[in-house]
């Protein structure tokens, strides 16, 4: 079981690098979608026995992270007639290098942290840290609103991975509350992205510079 989970986390970490290195927005969105599906099924693998509530949470996660939000982003992208991140604040090669260094640091750093025996063999903590770092690089380093949202999604995926450590400890009510909040959050972001597109006729956040001292 652990080896399957580790394999999937490895895939998620690979997708991080793909998102960092690619200039085409559709492939960034696709990496985020696949990553969302990969981490969405993970609760089913970690939970020893089948539980319909866990299955429900997993299904909702896959549906929202794998299909709903990526669709929302693709639609925003098409209506804005952009499919490329031009002149990011942090270039593609530097961000790829940052991501790779972050991944290595995450794997090394996770060893220094005390873990329960059942988690010591998994890549959950390094995977979570690497995704959080990747998310930050995208949030800071990209100029298009859609890329920044993708960064935020990867950041959230990382936190979700970390949350799997507590899957047996947190009550389902809290878990579903968190999931609901995150979903609504992304939905609100989607609406605002749409508003930006209408008001500025662009999704380039460099145009959002009126407000400053």
């Amino acid at each position: 079981m652990t080896s399957t989970v580790n394999l999937l986390i490895g895939v998620a970490m690979g997708l991080n690098l793909l998102a960092l290195g690619s200039s085409r927005l559709p492939s960034v969105i696709r990496s985020v979608a696949v990553q969302g599906m990969v981490i969405g099924v993970m609760p089913l693998l970690i939970e020893e026995h089948f539980d319909w509530r866990v299955a429900f949470v997993a299904a909702v996660t896959v549906g929202v992270k794998g299909f709903f939000i990526p669709n929302l982003l693709s639609r925003a992208m098409r209506s804005a007639h952009i499919d490329r991140e031009v002149e990011p604040f942090i270039g593609f090669v530097p961000s790829l290098l940052l991501g790779a260094a972050g991944t290595i640091a995450a794997v090394a750093g996770a060893r220094a942290l005390p873990l329960l025996p059942e988690h010591a063999g998994t890549l959950l903590v390094p995977g979570a840290l690497a995704s959080v770092l990747t998310g930050f690089v995208l949030l800071i380093g990209r100029a298009k609103a859609i890329s920044q949202v993708c960064g935020y999604l990867i950041l959230e995926n990382g936190i979700y991975l970390f949350g799997l450590l507590l899957i047996n400890a947190t009550p389902l009510l809290v878990e579903s509350g968190i999931l609901l909040d995150l979903t609504v959050g992304i939905f609100v972001i989607g609406i605002i992205v749409d508003r930006i597109q209408r008001a500025f006729d662009s999704l380039d956040t460099r145009k959002l510079t009126v407000l400053r001292e």
């Binding site: 935020y152 970390f162 949350g163 605002i192 508003r195 959002l208 407000l211």
Partner: peptide
């Protein structure tokens, strides 16, 4: 347009902050 710009910044900074506090809660 100014209000939308402010909302976007609020969402990104506030959203990131709140994501970090979730990570902290998990920790």
């Amino acid at each position: 347009a100014r209000a939308i710009e402010a909302t976007w910044k609020y969402l990104l900074v506030g959203g990131t902050g709140i994501a970090l506090s979730l990570l902290g809660s998990f920790c």
